[in-house]
Amino acid sequence: MDKDTKVQVMSESEQMLLWYQVNKFYSAEARALDEEDYVSWFNMLAEDLQYWMPVRESLFRKDEKPDSTKNMNHYNESFQSLQLRVARLHSGAAWSEDPRTRYRHLISNVEVEVGEKSGELKVLSNTLVYRNRLEREEYWLVAKREDVLRQVGGSFKVVKRKITPDFSCLLSKNLNVFL
């Protein structure tokens, strides 16, 4: 049975329920990231996670190629390497995060499809991340997210996330946030 057929056999109310559950999961994830609640965040990630954010470039259309992890990446992470990155913030010595950065993650345009493996979903979403810091520092990040979510208990875990940013030049001094 191909994927389209699978979605078609779900009733409209089943599809709505799934969409509602995924949105609820994303809202909770966004709140965890806004509040730097990484204990909750890591509970939402699978231990075999692939978390990838390639660098974008401005290329002539004829020169465009599919993204590859072999090129420069903002993130190309496992569950463990993400924990290492978070450990920096929790070291008590991240001077440049004190006072804290004010984060806001807004997730929208959620589209849910049945995944390639049973118990998995393929989800597209857009994310807009707002950062405000100190007196007047303000940065907006806009990106597409392509997730694979695994259904676990009554909720989900992120198994794969590809973040495709809409910037080629990051307009700020760092990328101190997960998307």
């Binding site: 420069m72 190309n76 390497s81 290492l84 001077w95 990051l170 001094k173 760092n174």
Partner: peptide, 24 residues
């Protein structure tokens, strides 16, 4: 090498992330 360079010295790197605020 590629992952180490991204983890340490890139905009998201755990070392480089702290440099920018000083220089700015």
């Amino acid at each position: 090498v590629q992952k180490a360079s991204s983890l340490t010295f890139s905009p998201s790197g755990i070392f480089e992330m702290d440099d920018g605020e000083n220089w700015e």
